[in-house]
Design a protein around this nucleic acid. Structure first.
Lengths: 154, 154
DNA sequence: GCGATTATCTCGCCGAGTAAGAGAATCATG
DNA sequence: CATGATTCTCTTACTCGGCGAGATAATCGC
């Protein structure tokens, strides 16, 4: 195996990977008639659904950094696409619960399913120790970016 | 160090890292009065400048998947911000060369500089063999995403 | 009860990006 | 050369996602 003389190569790889993943998402989104924001919302909704967490327009908007007007528009689009359904929360009737429809699950499966399978397949080319090294590396890099982000916004 | 029982954890790490990097870019952009697209354009322009490649509106628009009208608007914004300058190409006077101003370099330095330094710093916690493993891992994952992208658009 | 707070939605607007096409320069072919 | 096709950029008119301000409705606290 070759030596790494230039850690800068790793920095460019990280950037390149981000670009590829973003493009993958953007292309999947436009193929399915939704906007990048809609896809981000779908991912958030599916994650929350799997974790058993109730999502409201307020929480969704906060997660995506949208204000309430933009959030209403987003929820309208997702509802019109048949991906989610609005349901008044009977406990607190000011709230609206965003219920994920089956169609959203299928769409998510179409987006993640294939790619995740391919990624896991490629990981089989690495030994347990190597995967552990990759994990620690990714955690370290993520931590650095998260810290820089917090430092940037004071 | 711990064993990796769940390669899925690596998939989530990859996604999390992408999200963090995107947020970092979006926040940097809005702090400096530019849009995410403007930052993407800036990155492309600085890369090309360092490589000594001439960038025209056409090439820039193609790189960012914008049509010619959107590209004109983008170049107008960047020019108004004092980041680039339009110059007619004397060889082929249909073309416009986008010349990067010093201010763009400084902005790029502000964006990359700190983060890259931090990333390189964190990499010093890994041995040469580990960095090589990380490199191969990132290359493999990037390859998978790129292949999935090509497969998706037929 | 009643004012303060919380959650969502409505209205009017801005501006990034698109589609269609005009204008200007260059290339290719007879 | 000349002239028609091509290339590159810009203009016009429009769409639509997102924002600011504020209305509406339900809940909480004293």
């Amino acid at each position: 195996m070759s030596e790494v003389e230039e850690p800068m190569r790793l920095v460019h790889l990280l950037r390149g990977l981000t670009v590829e993943l973003d493009l993958f998402g953007a292309e999947f989104a436009s193929r399915n008639g939704l906007h990048p924001t809609d896809l981000r919302a779908l991912i958030h909704l599916l994650d929350a659904d799997r974790a058993g967490v109730v999502v409201t327009p307020g929480r969704l908007g906060a997660a995506l950094h949208l204000n309430s007007a933009g959030t209403t528009g987003l929820v309208d689009r997702l509802e019109k696409l048949g991906l989610i359904r609005r349901e008044r929360d009977p406990q607190d009737r000011r709230r609206v619960r965003l219920v994920v429809e089956d169609r959203a699950m299928e769409l998510g499966q179409g987006f993640f399913g294939g790619l995740i399978g391919d990624l896991l397949g490629a990981m089989r080319g690495f030994g347990p120790g190597e995967l552990d090294t990759a994990r620690r590396f990714l955690e370290a890099m993520t931590g650095v970016v998260a810290a820089a982000r917090r430092a940037g916004q004071e």
